[in-house]
């Protein structure tokens, strides 16, 4: 569907079609703590692969989900605006998305709307969650409710990459959801549904046109 827009010559993204591979992307503004969160989850399990031209760091991880072993690639992206044109390759074939904001900076929360909108243009159905990071800076924020994503039913996590609160839980949940999604991709269903819908729309338009014509002929009739 996305054609070539998502291709990065250095990376084989075909592998994400295989059953044992999932791709999870981390999105959010600059300095909200995306990289620190992944590092906290993986500790120093692996040396990441840096692709600086794409403002991308790739972390590999192996997880057991149920009785299956899956290879998880975390795509750690950069928030900086000058890498905007790279975004399609981040979204391409992703199976889940972790959206992060910084509880100390309102602007990063407000910007979630933009990140989410863009994500949905490319991946209308993949599992996604909202992560409030840096709660160690001010624990009081955890008494507040943040409503972004409530309507869309996105799970919400209060976390701290510094002290580790809920980091592992959040990543494990998202890996599981990515794997579930992979086994049961609803994006495909969506496409079929959309086609059905547009098909019906066309039919309705045809009918509407026919009615219009009738009206016109009525008018002509009445003019005569």
């Amino acid at each position: 569907m996305a054609g070539d827009v998502g291709s990065i010559p250095e990376l084989d993204q075909q592998k994400y079609d295989s059953d044992q591979q999932v791709k999870i992307i981390c999105l959010g503004d600059s300095a909200v703590g995306k990289s620190k969160l992944i590092e906290r989850f993986l500790l120093d399990e692996y040396r990441p692969q840096q692709l600086s031209t794409y403002a991308l760091t790739l972390y590999k991880h192996v997880a057991d989900v149920g009785n299956k072993t899956v290879a998880v690639d975390f795509w750690d992206t950069a928030g900086q605006e000058r890498f905007q044109s790279m975004h399609p390759s981040y979204y391409h074939k992703a199976h889940a998305c972790i959206m992060v904001f910084d509880v100390q900076r309102k602007i990063t929360y407000k910007n979630l709307a933009n990140w989410y909108k863009e994500l949905r243009e490319y991946r209308p159905e993949i599992p996604c969650c909202v992560v409030a990071n840096k709660i160690d800076a001010d624990l009081k924020v955890t008494q507040r409710s943040f409503n972004f994503g409530k309507k869309q039913g996105l799970p919400f996590y209060f976390v701290s990459a510094a002290d580790g609160t809920n980091v592992v839980k959040m990543f494990r949940d998202m890996i599981k959801r990515a794997v579930d999604y992979k086994q049961n991709p609803s994006d495909f269903m969506d496409e079929v549904l959309q086609e059905l819908e547009s098909f019906q729309l066309e039919k309705m338009e045809e009918n509407a046109e026919a009615e219009d014509e009738e009206q016109k002929s009525d008018q002509i009739l009445s003019l005569q």
């Binding site: 008494q143 507040r144 409710s145 943040f146 409503n147 972004f148 002290d163």
Partner: peptide
């Protein structure tokens, strides 16, 4: 390693960050 804290509260204050431009979300 897998430190978990449950912050879900029945009566969480609404966040003032949500107050303006509610429609965006």
């Amino acid at each position: 390693y897998d430190l978990e804290v449950d912050f879900s509260k029945p009566t969480a204050e609404r966040c003032s960050w949500d107050e303006e431009s509610e429609d965006d979300f």
